Amino acid sequence: MKDQHEPKTQSEWQTNLEDIGAKEGFYEALGDQHTALFVERGDTLIVTFENLDHVYERGADRMPWGYDFVTSRGWSMLGLMAHDWTWYRDSEVHDFFDRLRDEGFFERFSNVIFYGASMGAYAAAVFSSAAPGATVICISPQATLDREVASWETRYKKAWRRNYHDRYGYAPDLVADASAVHMFYDPRAPLDAMHVALFRGANIRKYRCRFMGHRIASLWLQLGILKPVIEGCVANTMTQAEFYTLLRRRRENGRFQKEMLQMLQKLDRPKMLARYCTAVLARRRGPNFRKALRAAEEQIARTNK
């Protein structure tokens, strides 16, 4: 049963955000495809950029991504929401960040963090240039979708024709003045790895999330490490050692185990596959792993004849 206070229509949803903005900060519609909600709490500001995957996962709950997590810690939040796969390439969004920069909005806060995943990570990187000295957290980011620079990028065709040459265009150049840029990606996902390779500089910190694919943040939620990762980056205490210690939790996660199984099957490494399936089955039941183990053992036996 739905909560009686949960927005049920587009109009009610917008009215709800307008009410929150009027009471605690501001709400703005940025053209037809983007909105911004600012909620003022403490002197740490988290600027988040919605990836539409977040919207589809939440259904009717249309608060900016991370709203409860951010505000519960006493942090202020500026949540940008896109209502299409826009990559935030509209002039209204660009003008909005120009205005905030020129009005000294970001200077009101002692700590400013830009966060996003995929499309949102691209936006976090480019718009962080409006707040020099900010921290940037990017999960599976894109550097650009400019066809002249990234002709190898075969995804996101809907956004290919948008303008990536303006003042908020090429992400690797626009993070130059950030204090730290934390980039999380799967090096075994070729297109994501190619985007991350374009980011270089002393402030770039890259964290490899092997076998996690593109949708890393959703897996982190399952593992319970998304919050500590963000908190570590916000506090500037995140290190490679701490991150990889947190990442060990993936070994017991069903989704990660399934992806590892599929990867080992594609590699055609029966001995390695058999060892992995045996390790998983020692912890839990798993019909797919038992079936894969039998197939691997049969393949090993044929090879040894």
Rank of each mutant, 00 (worst) to 15 (best):
V93Y: 07
K266E: 14
F69P: 00
M183A: 01
V149G: 01
R200H: 03
N51Q: 13
L267S: 09
F69S: 07
L281H: 07
D68V: 05
M77V: 11
G104K: 00
W152H: 12
G104D: 03
L80W: 09
S151H: 02
I230F: 07
R208L: 14
H94D: 13
P141K: 02
Y88S: 05
T237V: 08
T48C: 07
R58M: 09
P141C: 05
Y122H: 03
M77C: 12
V55F: 03
Y244E: 13
L191F: 07
F184T: 03
R302Q: 09
D98G: 06
I230T: 06
M63R: 11
Q257F: 07
G21S: 14
Y168A: 11
V149Q: 08
R210G: 07
F184E: 10
A121G: 09
R167P: 02
E92M: 04
E252G: 06
M119E: 15
V181S: 00
L281M: 09
K23V: 14
T144M: 09
F105V: 12
A296E: 10
K291G: 08
F184A: 08
H94R: 05
A197K: 11
S91G: 04
H54S: 12
T15S: 14
G201H: 05
A292T: 04
K227R: 12
V39L: 08
S110D: 12
V234H: 05
A134T: 02
A121V: 05
M183G: 00
R269K: 13
A235Q: 01
A295I: 02
L219A: 08
H214M: 00
I216T: 07
D90N: 13
P172K: 06
E242L: 11
K157V: 07
K271P: 00
L198M: 10
L221T: 09
I113R: 02
T239H: 03
S218V: 09
G232L: 05
V280A: 03
V39P: 08
T239Y: 06
E28Q: 15
A282H: 06
Q4C: 03
W85A: 07
R73C: 12
A282G: 10
D192Q: 09
D68N: 14
F69A: 12
D102S: 13
G286L: 12
T245Q: 14
G116M: 04
R205W: 04
M212R: 08
A143N: 03
A36T: 07
Q262P: 00
D102G: 06
L80V: 08
D43N: 13
Y56V: 07
I300D: 02
S11C: 09
V229P: 11
F243Y: 14
N288S: 09
D90V: 04
L247Q: 01
F256D: 00
A180V: 01
S11A: 15
M119W: 03
P228L: 06
A282M: 01
F106P: 11
R167Y: 05
T303D: 08
E50W: 01
Q240F: 01
T35P: 02
E57V: 01
E103F: 01
W220L: 13
A130N: 10
T71N: 10
A131F: 00
F199A: 06
V136M: 01
R208P: 00
D32M: 13
S140V: 05
R208M: 08
E24R: 10
G42L: 12
H165G: 00
R248M: 13
